[in-house]
């Protein structure tokens, strides 16, 4: 009989596979804060913008979009993180639906970080 740790290791491999299937290891990842506080600040609208973009915009194919819990920056919510392979993650704060569209266009598509919207 295999030990619980061995069972877990198998589960971890399976989890990796599952994540792979949903594009977790993609070159571009977008995380949108979706805790109650973030939603209250409007993150659901931001999420909607990203969801529509990922679904409809062919140039964003393969981009991994996920929700996340709150990191604790109440005064700066909603927050969005963009991970691009080989680069430091960029954390946008006080994102609005409008800003989200610009972030997609400028940052994700063209790689231009919009510095004034990044949290310090």
């Amino acid at each position: 009989m295999s030990s619980p740790l061995a069972v877990l290791e198998a589960k971890k491999q399976q989890a990796k596979k599952n994540l792979e299937e949903i594009g977790y290891f993609s070159d571009v990842k977008i995380y949108v804060g979706m805790a109650t506080c973030e939603i209250a600040a409007g993150s659901n609208h931001v999420m909607e913008v990203f969801q529509n973009a990922v679904k409809e915009d062919k140039s964003l194919k393969g981009v991994y979009l996920s929700q996340k819990g709150c990191a604790g920056r109440c005064n700066l919510e909603p927050t969005v993180e963009i991970y691009q392979k080989g680069k430091d993650p960029v954390k946008y704060v006080k994102v609005t639906a409008e800003n989200a569209k610009i972030i997609i266009e400028k940052h994700i598509k063209k790689g231009e970080v919009i510095k004034e919207w990044v949290g310090k």
């Binding site: 619980p4 740790l5 994540l19 995380y31 804060g33 996920s66 929700q67 819990g69 990191a71």
Partner: peptide
């Protein structure tokens, strides 16, 4: 993990070494 993982995806947690303590 708060702010790093998708709280509704158990795979995210497992992959971040979740349940390793329980297994141990």
């Amino acid at each position: 993990n708060c702010g790093l993982i998708d709280p509704e995806n158990i795979n995210d947690y497992i992959y971040a070494d979740g349940y390793k303590a329980l297994g141990t």
